[in-house]
Write a protein that binds this DNA or RNA. Sequence first.
DNA 1: ACAAAAGTGTTCGCCCTACACCCATGA
DNA 2: TCATGGGTGTAGGGCGAACACTTTTGT
Lengths: 229, 229
Amino acid sequence: MTENTPGFDFAVSIDCVLFGFDGTELKILLIERNEDPFKDWWALPGNLVNNEESVDQSAQRILKELTGLGDIYMEQYYAFGDVNRHPQGRVISVAYYAMLRLGGDKPLKPLSSYAKKAQWVNVASLPKLAFDHQHILNKGLEKIKRRIKHLPLAFELLPEKFTLTQVQSVYELILGKKLDKRNFRKKILSFKVLKELEEKQRGVSFRAATLYKFDKRKYNKLFGKEISF
Amino acid sequence: MTENTPGFDFAVSIDCVLFGFDGTELKILLIERNEDPFKDWWALPGNLVNNEESVDQSAQRILKELTGLGDIYMEQYYAFGDVNRHPQGRVISVAYYAMLRLGGDKPLKPLSSYAKKAQWVNVASLPKLAFDHQHILNKGLEKIKRRIKHLPLAFELLPEKFTLTQVQSVYELILGKKLDKRNFRKKILSFKVLKELEEKQRGVSFRAATLYKFDKRKYNKLFGKEISF
DNA sequence: ACAAAAGTGTTCGCCCTACACCCATGA
DNA sequence: TCATGGGTGTAGGGCGAACACTTTTGT
């Protein structure tokens, strides 16, 4: 335990809930810890905030250290501050989520030594998590359930070109319920933020679906108006 | 500046945005600081988190110290963590908001000495605030604008018995726009969480309005369903 | 030919919006 | 009697929900 100037004896950490979509399942990125406490447990990627960086910058740095990715839309969603959430001292953790495109082209970069490995894990079949990370994750899931109704989070999970069925899958996984195909397509197209491409799906053993792109320009023009599922 | 165990050299504070409604205006509670930095400036009520209390408990304690009120619905909404937000060291501040009933029956209790006085101030005509408190407040206002569409925040600002016009005023002030009287009444009554009383308004020099009460029982039964403005 | 997913319209009910006048009360 | 806010209904348009079959493609 630490002995410090009263009032200045806290640590602040970031924990990241990184969502990914592999075409079928909703995944999150976990690391296997290589240090006590909770050595060998699975945990959310996270680390302490340095003294010379803001918490937002820290979140970006930690995400970059763990994945090699920068410039990711990342949103703070809650600060967890129970007294005993960390066994080695008073640590307040600020949680962020991000939506990431999975794909072989973006391998996970080497990690700091406190993690043995990082791995994408299906949200539906998680191991026991270290600290209060299950709680942090649950709150993150609730958050994106609400936010995906107003923000275009789904397209950040999908490849640049995607089919409407893939978009629908993402919504169904996050909201946890089936949606009607015709109604879904009508609605998502009614926002006018998807651009239909000439191109079609390839390599599937059934009728190839039309590919679409998310049109960020048009989306930005909607600013102020709400999209709503 | 402080010299501490690396990693455990942060302070964590709470800042509270306390909303109140006096029948006409939306107010927030400010204090006038009696200590440097920002001596003599107006600021949001807040204080450092103690080592042996959770941030939620700390928020409750601080609110109680400043107002004498306990058991207030208080919600954390953001953590502010810029490097130089506090001139005397690295302080992360976790912001909470609460909706309070104003009224002479609940005077503000004596304050800790770091405040000269506390005062309800009209949100529409604020003084310059210390630290990044204007920013914290702005973010709080955005937050309640969204939340009042789904949560019964308005009734926490109102006296136990209130008229429909008063409810409408609160919504108009928070949303920053006029609403149609007939449509508003239809909608608010359609949620079935208001109980019409036998009683009428007294002491007004025009037709007395019917008084209503918020029915928490019925509201709790709605759990899961969303109310939506 | 069959398996698998793509793609497509209509109907109905509900909710949101816009809109204006009479009523009750106290001064 | 006047000034002030209280209280009330309806019509039209738009949106969300329910619902099933044909098309395309690869094997």
